[in-house]
Amino acid sequence: MTVSRAATVYDVADRAGVSIATVSRVLRSPEAVRPVTRERVLDAVAALGYVPSGSARGLAERRTGVLGLYFPGFDAADDAPALDVLSAGGRAAPPFTVVADGTDADAHTSMLFLDEVLRGAELEAWKQGFVLMVGVGRDDPDRSTVRDMAGRVDGLMVLARSVPDDVLANLARRIPVVVLSGPPRGDHYDHVTVSNAEAMGELTRHVLSQVGDGDVVFLAGPADSPDGEQRREGVTAAVAAAGRAPVDVIRGDFTRASGRRAAEELLRTGVPSALIAANDQMALGALDVFRAGGVRVPQDVLVTGFDGIEATALSVPPLTTIRQPMIELGRAAVQVLARRLEQRDAPPLTARLPLRILLRESSRRAD
């Protein structure tokens, strides 16, 4: 097979009878070029099959046209089965299977928090003319993934506390950084966040109004999660303001499996009147165990979550939750990062997006 030489910008300029600078202007800012000249250049581009070189353009502009989004990986489908499509040696897999009871323990059809944030970032990056590079730092103790990403992107978006402070500060000396979620901590980064404590406090007041003197347990996330700790603070502040004893706290890791483990522990030690979870995945895991153990929700225990993922509307019963603007968080992070690339000396910006408390059957005691 013969491979023809790829057309260059010089070929386009020669065919259109213009300078290479004019070709560049047509491709970058077509509205700045006279229509007749623009059409002549675009005709030459089409005839030659010319594709602009992103690497060459990046060298000239000292830009890559790529934004980075780094996640810690705790919201991954941690209990998904291993997939190996090569070991079958070419043998065809069965086209389908039948599950007698209609359940599927390996299903991961609901959109998780980070899935939605990623979806929003992808959409906005495309609109802004950037490519999005995604890195997941699971099992990455030395943060080699994010260090490698930083050398390949124009700017970086990271989930709060997913990168050690010293590593993040070092990266920020090279490229702009936007921190997603968690409160600003006297740093000089741009932030995109939500009011975790305030919304969780309001949800807690609702739960207390339903359980009377009943006991409440908080299913917390990891202690190093800023969002999780803000939600814990919202719960404890609301409980203290109500003049009640401090709530018991069980630690999870934001996965559905950790929610199941917490609920199994409560089945052994005593099911509370209400279980407030720091995210939806843990709350859904608790619902799994309570249902299997014959514990009725909400008659025996109220359960609430946080994030507003799709599965909460489909659970049995539908789960009370606080809906984060997940897609908007991703979009806002890209917008803020794009602004920073154009305005390097602008003061740090904190964009705070609104939350919605969705009261559903899982937190409503029958009258």
Rank of each mutant, 00 (worst) to 15 (best):
T2S: 15
Y10C: 10
A13G: 12
R28H: 15
S29Y: 10
V36F: 11
T37Q: 05
R57N: 09
R62A: 00
R62S: 04
G65A: 04
D78A: 10
G89S: 09
A93F: 08
A100Q: 13
D101L: 02
G102V: 02
T103V: 01
D104N: 06
G120D: 09
E124F: 05
V134L: 05
G135W: 02
D139S: 10
D139H: 14
T145W: 05
D165G: 03
A169L: 08
A169G: 03
A169K: 04
R185A: 03
D187H: 10
Y189K: 03
E198S: 08
T204D: 15
V207W: 01
L208G: 11
A220Q: 09
G221S: 09
G228Q: 00
R231H: 00
G234R: 01
G234F: 00
G234C: 02
V235Y: 00
G243L: 08
R244N: 11
A245H: 07
P246G: 04
V247W: 04
F254N: 07
R268Y: 13
P272H: 13
M282I: 03
G285E: 02
A286Y: 03
L287Q: 13
D288C: 04
V289K: 12
G305Q: 01
D307T: 02
P317T: 05
M326I: 09
Q335R: 14
L337G: 11
A338N: 10
L353M: 10
S363D: 05
A366P: 03
